[in-house]
Structure formats: C-alpha cells, structure tokens
Amino acid sequence: MNELPLVSVIIPNYNYASTIGECVKAAQRQTYPSIEVIVADDASTDNSVEIARGLGATVLRVPVNSGVSTARNLGAAHARGEVLFFVDSDVALDEDAVERAVEYLRTEPGLGAICGMYRAEPMFPDSVVKRYRAIQQYVWFNEIDGAIPGLHSALFAMRKETFLEIGEFNDRLRWTEEQDYGFRLNARYEVKAVPTIRGRHDHDGTLRIMLTKVFNRTRLGAPNWLRLNKLPGGAGSGHRALGSGFVLAAVLALVSTVIFGRWALLAAAALTGAGIVLDSRTYAYAFRHHGVVFGLQFTVLHLLVTLTSAVAAGIGILQGLLFPSMTRRLYRVEKPA
C-alpha cells in the first residue's frame, strides 16, 4: 500500500434525503487528506441525489432499484482509490474514522477488512425507538474488539485489491448481504472490528419498521448461521440467543394461563427474568446512563426485539432444515459431494 493512498468513500443510498447531507459532509470533514466521496444511488425517488450533488459528491445511479449490494458494487467499480471505505447513507463518520482505518490496513497486511462501530447516540435523537436502538447496538458492538466472524457493513474499509479478489456483494441478498460477504472474507483473511472507528447512525424511528427489519434479517440469516455453525456478534451472543429463547418461552407460558392459571404466570415471570439476566449488560447500560424512566421504556422495547428475534430465528432455522437447497442457492454455495 502506498504511504498515502487515495481512499474512496462509497455511500450506497436509497431515499435517505433526511441523512445523506450529514453523511456526505462527515466524509468530507475527515482528517485524512486524500479522499474521494462517491454516492452510489439505488434509483432514489426523493431529492437525496440533488443534496449529494449540491455538496460536491460524485453521484452514480442504478437505473432500477436493485438493493444495497448493487449500489455498493457500482461504487466500487468506479472507485479510483486504493482503499474502499463503505459507509451507509444514514451514518455520519467521526472525523478521524478514515485516518484510523487506513492506519490499520497499512500496518496489518493480512487484514481483509477493518470495521467500525456506532456511537451510543443516534444522528438525530428524535424518538425513543432511535435512542433505544442506538444503545442496544452500541452495547452489543462494544463486546467486540478484534477478530469477528462476519462484517459490520455500515462502516468498514478494505483494500480494493482485496475486494477484487473476494468479488462483489451478492446482489440476491437484500437483508443479509453483510453476513455473506463477511463469511467469504473470513475464509481468506482476518476481519476486525474496533471501537476507535466510530459513526453516528440514524436508527429506525418507528417500532414497526425496526421490528420488521429485525424479523427479516434474523429469519433470512438464521439458515446461514445453521449452515456455517456460527452465531453473529460478540462474546455475549450465545447468552443472548439463550435469553431470547427464555423470553419466547415466557410468552408461551403467559398464553397457557388459561389452562395452568397462576403457575403459568409465575413461570412466565421467572422465564422473563432469566432472559433479562442473560442480557443484563444491555439493560444495565440503559438504566445507568439514562435513568429509570428511559430504562423502563428501553426494557419494554428490548423485550419486544428479543421476542421478535426468537420467533424469526426459529422460523429461519426450520426453513434451513427443511429446505437446505434454497439456502445454498441464495448464498451461491455448491452442493456438497
């Protein structure tokens, strides 16, 4: 790698007029001096393209909405940089994010990608759901400092030569493309996530959208976890997976109160408590840093997310067991001999 390589900051975008301005300006404010900013637009219908162009970013457009993988691939194909830094259009990078990423890639030649993490504060803290999601992902991401089995695709950097070697993002995948790409990268290189590369994410603002995304990503990702015998996330992911099972069991116990009465209620309370204990660091952070009122709001939202994840994982695992060929086709995996 050259001493001061050009970095292509690639921003996939689809109808993010509310955040694209902050995202582009944050990329332009980087302390690293050798940067080009590319917005790869996935056929947006709002004015996000005009905003990006008005700020001086290079804008490329996909003619038909095709998903984030297609947008990222388009940006990479036109990038002139020796380093590609992918950042989602709802993330505002810290000013030293690119500089720190380049330093990791320069000093660790065997590194396939270096991933950053979200801050605990959303880009625009204008709803309880956004604040909840920012804290939840902040706590979970910060369990990791080093090698990871997947990829944090919202903000990560890699050498362009590595991208060309691994190949493009799988354009069949709209919810789990980062899992697929991370597994492919890990087959040849080490992938790291570090807390020193940061960005503020504009998380989903409504409960419906958040739960829909959690359900789809978990359901579609679960067959791949089953195939690879891996769980995404850090050291606490196994405890949280078990905890989500307890929360699902608590709901089933609650439904059974018609038959078993107060014993079922006691069982539901005990199971819920066990689920909370298994993810106690997440709940504790909310109460410790934001007080009792928000902590209680956080608890309700987190139990809903945990329950949604458990139901989605169960459906996804069942689909993976019943229809393994569908999973192989989706992830372009050859049938075992």
Rank of each mutant, 00 (worst) to 15 (best):
Arg200Phe: 01
His201Thr: 07
Asp202Pro: 01
Asp202Met: 00
Asp204Ala: 08
Asp204Gly: 09
Arg208Gly: 10
Ile209Met: 13
Met210Lys: 07
Leu211Trp: 05
Leu211Pro: 04
Thr212Tyr: 01
Lys213Phe: 00
Lys213Ala: 00
Val214Arg: 12
Val214Ser: 04
Arg217Val: 01
Thr218Asp: 04
Arg219His: 05
Arg219Gly: 01
Arg219Cys: 10
Arg219Met: 14
Gly221Asn: 01
Gly221Lys: 02
Pro223Gln: 07
Pro223Ala: 06
Asn224Ala: 12
Asn224Arg: 13
Asn224Thr: 05
Asn224Met: 14
Trp225Gly: 02
Leu226Val: 07
Leu226Pro: 04
Arg227Asn: 08
Arg227Ser: 06
Leu228Ile: 04
Leu228Glu: 10
Leu231Asp: 08
Pro232Tyr: 12
Gly233Asn: 12
Gly233Met: 09
Gly234Tyr: 09
Gly234Met: 10
Ala235Met: 06
Ala235Lys: 13
Gly236Arg: 02
Ser237Arg: 09
Ser237Thr: 15
Gly238Ile: 10
His239Ala: 14
Arg240Thr: 09
Ala241Val: 07
Ala241Thr: 15
Gly243His: 02
Gly243Thr: 03
Ser244Tyr: 11
Ser244Arg: 11
Ser244Met: 07
Gly245Gln: 14
Gly245Leu: 09
Phe246Trp: 10
Phe246Leu: 12
Val247Cys: 02
Val247His: 04
Val247Lys: 04
Val247Ala: 04
Leu248Ser: 01
Leu248Gln: 04
Leu248Trp: 08
Ala249Val: 04
Ala249Gly: 13
Ala250Tyr: 02
Val251Lys: 02
Val251Phe: 14
Val251Asp: 00
Leu252Asn: 02
Leu252Gln: 05
Ala253Ile: 13
Leu254Ala: 08
Ser256Met: 13
Thr257Cys: 10
Thr257Pro: 00
Ile259Val: 15
Phe260Ser: 08
Phe260Cys: 05
Gly261Asn: 06
Gly261Cys: 08
Arg262Cys: 01
Arg262Ser: 03
Trp263Ile: 15
Trp263Glu: 11
Trp263Cys: 09
Ala264His: 08
Ala264Glu: 02
Ala264Tyr: 07
Leu265Thr: 06
Leu266Phe: 13
Leu266Ser: 00
Ala267Gln: 05
Ala268Ser: 15
